[in-house]
Amino acid sequence: MNPNPRLATDAVTIGYGDRVVVDALDLAVPDGRITVIVGANACGKSTLLRGMARLLRPSSGAVLLDGEAVHTRPTREVARVLGLLPQHPITPDGVTVVDLVGRGRHPHQGLLGRWSAEDERAVADALVRTGTADLADRLVDELSGGQRQRVWVAMALAQGTDLLLLDEPTTYLDVAHQVEMLDLLTDLNRRSGTTIVMVLHDLNLASRYADHLVAMKAGRIVAEGAPADVVTEHVIGEVFDLDCQVIPDPVAGSPLVVPVGRHHAPLTSAPPDRARKVVSL
């Protein structure tokens, strides 16, 4: 791995008041790849992402962007390199698609926010790449959930950053739109080399789309690396406290997690101790 990644954390600790949520965590985000952070609820994955996007200030350690602490750099300058799509962005009333996407140009515009030819090109490009050009004059409020999420991604694209962080970009989407969204982000990564870091809930989609998978528990990294190395019955058992079997995804070959649960016993190839434990429950 590149010894000097553009985005990294150095023993970063982030918390709310006395409560430590991310605990002295070291992470090097591989450049030009897709990194996915997974973990149980409240494991600190969103907090880590928000800390990396300078929304939260670390109580110790640092988030390094191009070798400098992100919190000490001018925020506009950071916004030209590092973008973030939060989980719950607010759609202003009466805003059209093109207006919303255009707001992604904010860090590139001068004091009075004049709209330049470059802004126009960047917005057009973002609309086309997310397949939302046909919606350009529509009100965002009138769109379906899947369309709206693509518009938000278009806004992040218009920002034109080399690194893009996304907090659960597939929440509220049905499975077809989840796949569509992740395909879109993969296109972006493959074509433009944009470094992507996202938090995902769905382990199987995470395994399939991640180049680099980070599994977190209680504010620390339990395992990280290629999905095939991270997603094992042992790691998933530790991270999610879940009995499961891992089989190869018949489509992508990536690991596929099949949870066990209390009401079902594995039909085949379960390790005997696990099977007994399930039955005894």
């Binding site: 925020t75 950071v78 202003p92 992604g104």
Partner: peptide
């Protein structure tokens, strides 16, 4: 006001996105 009001375009999107777009 003329200079400052511009930040409304990002703060309307929520505090997180406002920061992400470079609004102090």
């Amino acid at each position: 006001l003329a200079v400052r009001a511009r930040s409304l375009r990002t703060t309307q999107l929520g505090d997180d996105l406002a920061t992400a777009l470079g609004t102090r």
